[in-house]
């Protein structure tokens, strides 16, 4: 029996949804003003964005999803009130080789440590492996992001690459760590 009854976008406390161009820009604009969050989420130099700039980014994301077909972007909403709590995505998909990069973030400090990230990663992996049928996924994070590293390890990711001293933060140098999980490994875990 093909188990298509499983809802791909519903978890215990959160759900995946599309971008809301009306209400989300103001929320995400706030996240971009949190330097600590941005340095965990992104490697590029950070800068705060106004709601109008975020809105432009959302339009670019949806355009890319439509035209290039190698980006799948989800907003993470709390089930209790549907408010935006984060984002989860599969990007830079290389279809010929079955590879994709995954990324997720819980934007507001008060929404962290509630298991939202874990539930989002679980849904994202199911989507990448059972819907996109990717062969493997990759997640890259600086060595100082303990929370991300613990999360990837919990889901069975294997540390594959350590680009030595590739990240410079406040004059300190950190390794850039790359984790990989194969579709076969994910299936074995699910079966166990």
């Amino acid at each position: 029996m093909l188990g298509i009854q499983t809802q791909l976008f519903e978890a215990q406390d959160i759900r995946f949804g599309p971008i809301d161009h009306e209400t989300h820009p103001a929320v995400e604009s706030k996240w971009t003003h949190d330097a600590e969050f941005m340095r965990l989420y992104d490697l590029k130099p950070i800068r705060p964005l106004s709601p109008a700039m975020v809105k432009k980014q959302y339009e670019a994301i949806e355009k890319e999803m439509e035209e290039d077909r190698n980006l799948f972007y989800f907003t993470i909403r709390a089930r209790e009130d549907d408010r935006l709590v984060g984002k989860a995505l599969v990007e830079w998909i290389d279809w010929a080789n079955g590879n994709g990069f995954i990324r997720l973030g819980i934007g507001a400090a008060e929404d962290r440590r509630k298991g939202y990230g874990s539930q989002a990663l679980s849904m994202l992996l199911r989507y990448a492996f059972s819907e996109l049928n990717l062969f493997r996924v990759t997640a890259v994070t600086p060595a100082y992001n303990d929370g991300a590293i613990r999360l990837f390890q919990k889901f069975g990711f294997v540390e594959e690459i350590r680009r030595r001293k590739a990240i410079n933060r406040d004059g300190e140098f950190w390794d850039l760590v790359s984790f990989g999980l194969l579709n076969s490994e994910w299936r074995e875990q699910a079966a166990a």
Binding site: D94, A96, N97, G98, N99, F135, R136, T138, V158, E159, E160, I161, R162, R163, R164, K165, A166, S178, G180, L182
Partner: peptide, 24 residues
């Protein structure tokens, strides 16, 4: 060699790795 991306690609039906290298 700084690491190996396991089963990174497929050629002729065979999976192969991606090797990552760095020089400081």
């Amino acid at each position: 060699v700084e690491g190996v991306q396991r089963s990174d690609g497929q050629r002729e039906g065979v999976r192969y790795d991606g090797i990552y290298m760095g020089l400081l």
